[in-house]
Design a protein around this nucleic acid. Structure first.
Lengths: 180, 180
DNA sequence: TGGCTCATGTAAGCCGTTACATGATTTT
DNA sequence: AAAATCATGTAACGGCTTACATGAGCCA
């Protein structure tokens, strides 16, 4: 983020919130200590940059920081991928629910998708996002939009199936609540 | 997992590995202490169930455990969704890479998708997965297959774009490594 | 006999969040 | 005058992984 024009810890956080947050988040409790750690490692330089009476610290990458960043970026091995999806987990155990209960979960996730897609489109239309002419952040954003739209479609189809089943119920279609 | 027929901590772990692992994993270091905690809370019952000379503990849900499970499953509020995707993160910062470096990341993720889809299909074809006639685990699996196939298609398209750009390079298409 | 699977567990540590604390500057 | 934003930081805690330790039973 420093390389993309951020200067302070606060600034980094704001940028994350409108960009990588969806697939790589960070909190102040992580950012500020990490900046100090990077400084100790000689990868960033801190400069006092008071704003009026408020002390403020502006950071920038050192030569060593640039190299370390590039080395990491250019390494295609062991690209971490992690996911925790509670809606999917509840679908996995869906046989223990009635159709109505399952539908509530499916609908909730579909509505969440609507909100997220809306948010992403808003971000996409922000006149200035702070990366200048760079293309790659926009591509990542579009990946996000398309992914959530895919998810939304999946959940919407599921919603329709469950509603259809509710209108013409069949044996075993609705189960008793979680008792054996 | 206990409700779906698992009995021991070990068994739970095996089931997770062929099912929820992709969107909700767990390690032994989490499972065994958690089983003890649930026992203290009265949500599961432990029974000594030695296998030959090996001591083994079989667990099952109590009435209170059944209720707690159902209560959690039927609650559609605050469905957690989290993701960490390092490939996407590197694409986000892709403007700092040459096309060749970026391509290596894209290809690596696409190949990872191939492997995961392959694994999921193998799981899908396992004669017995241990849930009897339950439908919901299979649906979650198919969600996973379709999601990864979507991802794969996205990365493949990106791969083709980068290769095409390499064959007829244009100004600005390839940048110098991470120096300002 | 050796290797794999079944089986249980703990300790150390990492990564990260939440909540709290503080206060100036800018906007309404 | 109040509210929002800019700005920095810490402490406590939660959740989870990795590595380690142990050992019996089963199969080739």
């Amino acid at each position: 983020m420093l390389r993309f024009g951020s200067r302070t810890g606060y600034d980094i956080k704001q940028k994350i919130e409108i960009s990588t947050r969806f697939f790589w988040g960070a909190s102040y409790g992580q950012i500020y200590p990490e900046l100090k750690r990077l400084e100790r490692m000689g990868l960033v330089e801190a400069e006092a940059d008071p704003r009026g009476g408020v002390k403020r610290t502006a950071y920038k990458l050192t030569e060593a920081g640039e190299s370390a960043l590039h080395e990491w970026l250019a390494d295609p091995s062991d690209l971490l991928f992690e996911m925790r999806d509670e809606a999917l987990l509840k679908i996995f155990f869906g046989d223990l629910l009635t159709d109505a209960e399952l539908l509530a979960n499916v609908r909730a996730r579909r509505e969440w998708c609507d909100q997220v897609v809306g948010l992403f489109h808003q971000i996409d239309e922000l006149p200035v996002r702070g990366w200048g002419k760079r293309e790659s952040p926009t591509e990542a954003l579009h990946y996000g939009i398309e992914l959530i739209e895919w998810m939304r479609a999946w959940y919407e189809r599921k919603e329709r199936e469950l509603k259809a089943r509710a209108r013409r119920p069949h044996p075993g279609g609705t189960r008793a609540p979680g008792r054996r």
